[in-house]
C-alpha cells in the first residue's frame, strides 16, 4: 500500500501539478500561434510578470491588514489577471503590432518576443532584485493536507498542499470557461474561425483586430493565473517561468499548435511523463525483492532518467514530436 501511495504522490500528483501549469501556459502559446502565427517565446516571462503583479497586490492588501482563509495572492487574482491582460495587450501594441503591420515573417516576431522576454526579465530584476520570495505573506501558512490511508494498511499519508488543490480548481475552471467561450460565444467562434482561416475570416467581415485583442487578453489572463499558481506552489523567483517555457512549448507543439484542447492534453502528458521518467522504481518494487533470483538485488536508484536530467525529458519529447509529427499528435496548424 505504501508503494502505491508513494507512486501517487510522486507521479500522479506532482505530474498533474506540473501538467496543469504547462497546460495553462501552453493554451496561451497555442492561441497566440493560432491567431498570429508566431511562437511567442515571451510567454514564460508573461507568467512570471503575472505572478509579480499578484505578489505586489497581495502585499498591498496585506499591508491594509486584510486577511483571508486562502492566501491573499489568490484573493487578489481577479485584479492581477486584469492588469496582466492589459500589460500583455500593451506589449503587443508596442512591440509586435508594428512588425505585423510591416508584414514581418513569423521568425522575426519570434526574435522580437525574445527581446520582450529579456526586457521583462531585466525589469523584474531591476525592480524586485534576483532573490527568491515567498508568495505567502509572513502571517500566512501554506496548509498541507495529509490524507491517511491507515485503513487500507498504508503507513504513509497522501500529501496535497493548499496551492495544489487551488491549482486544480483554477485549471479546471479555466478549461471549462475557455471551452464555453470558444464554442458558445460569438467572439470565441470568431477566434476559432480566424485561427482556422485568417483570409476567409477577413472576407467574412470578422474584425480580426478585435480578435487579436481578445487573444492577447486571454493569453495574458491565463499567464497570470498559471504564474501565480506556480509561485504559490513553489516560490516566487524572477526566473520562475523562463525555465519552463520550453516544456510549455513542447506541450503546445505536442498538442498541435493552434489546438487549445491539444495543448491541455500535451501539458498533462509532458507533466506526467517528466514525473514518470525521474520516478525511482526501486521504491515500488521493494516488496518483490525477496522473489528476485539468488544473487540479484534491487539497485538503489532505478529511475529511467537521473533527476538532474529531468528538464531534458520535455526537450526530448519536443524534438521527437517535431521530427516525427511536426503538426503535433492532435493535428495542429501549419503556417
Amino acid at each position: 500500500m505504501d508503494e502505491i501511495i508513494f507512486l501517487v504522490n510522486k507521479v500522479v500528483i506532482s505530474g498533474a501539478v506540473l501538467g496543469s501549469i504547462y497546460a495553462l501556459g501552453a493554451i496561451g502559446v497555442t492561441l497566440i500561434f493560432g491567431i498570429l502565427r508566431f511562437a511567442h517565446f515571451a510567454h514564460g516571462d508573461m507568467m512570471t510578470m503575472g505572478a509579480f503583479v499578484a505578489f505586489l497586490l497581495a502585499a498591498l492588501v496585506g499591508a491594509m491588514g486584510i486577511t483571508a482563509p486562502v492566501p491573499l495572492a489568490f484573493v487578489v487574482l481577479p485584479l492581477a489577471v486584469v492588469i496582466t491582460a492589459v500589460l500583455a495587450l500593451l506589449i503587443d501594441r508596442g512591440f509586435y503590432a508594428p512588425l505585423r503591420a510591416r508584414g514581418a515573417k513569423p521568425v522575426t516576431l519570434l526574435i522580437a518576443s525574445i527581446g520582450v522576454t529579456l526586457m521583462i526579465q531585466g525589469l523584474i530584476r531591476l525592480v524586485f532584485g534576483s532573490g527568491t520570495r515567498n508568495m505567502y505573506l509572513d502571517i500566512e501558512d501554506k496548509i498541507i493536507f495529509r490524507m491517511d490511508f491507515g485503513w487500507l494498511g498504508g503507513t504513509r499519508p497522501l500529501v496535497l498542499s493548499q496551492p495544489q488543490i487551488l491549482m486544480f480548481f483554477v485549471t479546471l475552471a479555466c478549461i471549462t470557461g475557455l471551452h464555453f467561450f470558444l464554442t458558445r460565444t460569438r467572439m470565441g467562434k470568431a477566434m476559432r474561425a480566424t485561427s482556422d482561416n485568417l483570409d476567409l475570416a477577413q472576407v467574412s467581415g470578422i474584425n480580426t483586430q478585435q480578435v487579436v485583442t481578445v487573444t492577447w487578453l486571454i493569453a495574458g489572463s491565463l499567464a497570470c493565473l498559471a504564474g501565480t499558481m506556480l509561485a504559490l506552489d513553489v516560490n516566487l523567483r524572477p526566473d520562475l517561468a523562463f525555465n519552463i517555457v520550453l516544456p510549455i512549448f513542447a506541450a503546445a507543439i505536442v498538442g498541435g499548435l493552434g489546438n487549445a484542447y491539444g495543448a491541455i492534453a500535451g501539458g498533462l502528458l509532458i507533466g506526467v511523463t517528466e514525473a514518470l521518467a525521474v520516478f525511482n522504481w526501486t521504491a515500488v518494487l521493494r516488496p518483490f525483492a525477496p522473489y528476485l533470483p539468488f544473487g540479484m538485488e534491487l539497485p538503489a536508484n532505478l529511475a529511467l532518467v537521473p533527476t538532474e536530467y529531468k528538464l531534458t525529458v520535455a526537450f526530448v519529447i519536443l524534438v521527437i514530436t517535431l521530427l516525427w509529427r511536426p503538426t503535433g499528435i492532435f493535428r495542429g496548424l501549419s503556417t
Binding site: K189, R192, A193, D196, N197, D199, L200, A201
Partner: peptide
C-alpha cells in the same frame, strides 16, 4: 478555394 472554416 479555402472558402469554408474546415474546423468549424
Amino acid at each position: 478555394e479555402k472558402n469554408v472554416f474546415t474546423s468549424l
